[in-house]
Amino acid sequence: MTPTLERRVRRRARGRCEYCRLPRFASEFTFPIDHIIARQHGGATEADNLAQSCPHCNAHKGPNIAGLDPSTGEFTRLYHPRIHRWREHFAWTGAVLKGRTPIGRTTIEVLAINDPDMVAAREALIEEGRFPGR
């Protein structure tokens, strides 16, 4: 990945994880650039297949491109930040992210977005008025 491409992806993400919306400033770790469709599945290293993710989402997503919808058990693709509109698939209830669609529910489940530690981090940010993902 070229430095120019990395800057483009980071700028487009506006300083937050493109999956859970955690702001970059809330982590002591660098936010990795995720291949939305992993290279092992034929995903290219190009802007339309890259997303900035927080370390938590990145570690849980790995090369996954789908999972099982926890409500229906149906095999469902994960949220794709370049194709899908975030607000169609997700909604906040306080610091807890809710899935509005099978894609949203599945993504939340696979990426463990509502892990208790992540919810606690978002609650603290909300209390400080510093959670821009809302």
Rank of each mutant, 00 (worst) to 15 (best):
M1D: 12
M1H: 12
T2Y: 03
T2M: 10
T2R: 14
T2S: 15
P3I: 03
T4N: 14
T4F: 09
L5T: 10
E6C: 13
R8N: 08
R8I: 08
R8Q: 12
V9F: 02
V9L: 06
R10G: 04
R11M: 12
A13K: 03
A13M: 00
R14K: 14
C17G: 00
C17P: 04
C17F: 07
E18F: 09
C20S: 07
R21W: 10
L22K: 08
L22V: 04
P23E: 08
R24A: 09
A26D: 01
E28S: 07
T30C: 08
F31A: 00
I33F: 03
I33Q: 05
D34Y: 02
H35M: 00
H35N: 06
H35K: 01
I36Q: 01
I37W: 11
A38L: 00
R39E: 14
R39Y: 13
Q40F: 09
H41N: 05
H41S: 10
G42V: 03
A44G: 10
T45D: 15
T45E: 12
T45K: 09
E46W: 10
L50W: 03
A51P: 08
A51G: 08
Q52A: 05
S53Y: 04
C54R: 03
C54G: 01
P55G: 00
P55R: 06
H56L: 00
C57P: 04
H60A: 03
P63F: 06
P63Y: 11
N64R: 15
N64D: 15
A66R: 12
D69V: 09
P70Y: 08
P70A: 05
P70I: 06
S71C: 09
F75P: 15
R77E: 09
R77Y: 10
L78Y: 04
H80G: 10
H80W: 03
P81L: 09
P81K: 05
P81Y: 06
R82K: 14
I83E: 15
H84A: 07
H84V: 00
R85E: 13
R87L: 13
R87Q: 14
E88W: 08
E88D: 15
H89W: 15
A91R: 13
A91W: 07
A91P: 10
W92S: 08
T93I: 13
T93R: 15
T93C: 12
G94H: 14
V96P: 02
L97H: 02
L97S: 01
R100M: 11
R100L: 13
T101G: 03
P102Y: 14
G104T: 12
R105C: 01
T107S: 12
T107Q: 07
T107W: 06
I108E: 03
E109S: 15
V110W: 08
L111V: 02
L111F: 08
A112T: 02
A112E: 11
A112W: 08
I113Y: 06
N114R: 02
N114C: 02
D115S: 13
P116N: 01
P116L: 02
D117N: 10
D117G: 10
M118T: 01
V119Y: 02
V119R: 07
V119T: 02
A120G: 09
A120S: 13
A121P: 04
A121Q: 15
A121S: 12
R122P: 07
R122T: 03
E123W: 04
E123T: 13
A124Q: 15
A124M: 10
E127V: 11
E128Q: 14
G129L: 04
G129M: 14
R130C: 03
F131P: 05
P132M: 01
P132G: 13
G133P: 08
R134M: 12
R134P: 09
